[in-house]
Amino acid sequence: MGAQRVGRRRWLRWTAAALAASVLVVGVLALLVWNGVLWPNRFLASGYDVRGVDVSSYQGDIDWPVLADEDIDFAFIKATEGSSHVDERFAANWDGALATDLVVGAYHFLSFESPGETQAANMIEQVPATPGTLPPVVDAEYYAGFAADPPSVAELRAILDPLLADLEEHYGAPPILYTTQEFRERFLGDDYDDHPLWIRAVALTPDVPRHEWEFWQYSDRDVLDGYSGEETHIDMNVFDGSLEELQALTLD
């Protein structure tokens, strides 16, 4: 009986040590992922030659020549949101990015709370239709309490459709649609396939077939040189094509 008790104590000590080690390993891995040191999609995205970032005021003051040297080819810059909000860093970012050899575009964050026509007017007022820049982007995703209480498909499209139409008329090209896989399935389906698709999938490759998307946001946890804002991470993206094909998407 004594030998059994000793053996049981050893087993319990070994089990406790193994569990503690496992918890430590999991904790370290989680910390590395959270800080962007490890990211599952980096390997999956490494087969694409054309890479880029998307930025907003959260990245703070951007040194565009430094950021442009970080093995990237394009940059999307937040311009507007809803019918009146303008990103406080947009003008500086737009001018700074255009002074580099990056292919540059601007994006508008879709609001579910104001008409599409006034949202389009907000973006048009801020973003010049500059030849050689990418078509405007409409970022359509859940935000705030709308994730739990979203609009209906009809309500969403009543805002989105005139927004897209007015932007296409002004810029002369179909706007790019940025969205998540869940949002696309629920609200968009294949009814907007005449718009280039920028899909967010930061855990694995997109569920959307590769031939259906042009841009893939594969990470929101990268760290590059060239910016100093409250957000230390930066979003990374790839384009499914060559640099020449990306440039062919730009405005005339």
Rank of each mutant, 00 (worst) to 15 (best):
G7H: 07
G7C: 10
R9A: 13
A17D: 01
A21I: 02
V25Y: 01
V26Y: 01
W34Q: 15
G36E: 07
N41E: 11
G47D: 06
G47C: 04
G52T: 03
G52V: 08
V53Y: 14
D54R: 11
Y58A: 08
Y58Q: 09
A68N: 01
E70S: 10
A75T: 13
I77P: 01
G82N: 07
S84Q: 06
V86H: 05
E88A: 13
A97M: 03
A99E: 15
G105V: 03
Y107I: 02
H108Q: 04
L110H: 10
G116F: 02
G116A: 12
A121L: 11
A121W: 09
M123V: 10
I124D: 14
P131Q: 13
G132E: 09
L134Q: 05
V137A: 08
V138E: 14
D139E: 09
D149L: 11
V153G: 07
E155F: 05
A158W: 04
L160K: 05
L160G: 01
L163W: 10
H170D: 08
R186C: 01
D190E: 15
H195Y: 12
W198M: 03
I199G: 00
V202F: 06
A203Y: 13
L204W: 12
D207P: 07
D207N: 14
V208Q: 09
V208W: 07
F215Q: 04
Q217R: 11
R221S: 15
S228G: 11
I234K: 01
A248P: 03
A248Q: 05
A248F: 03
L249N: 05
T250F: 09
D252E: 15
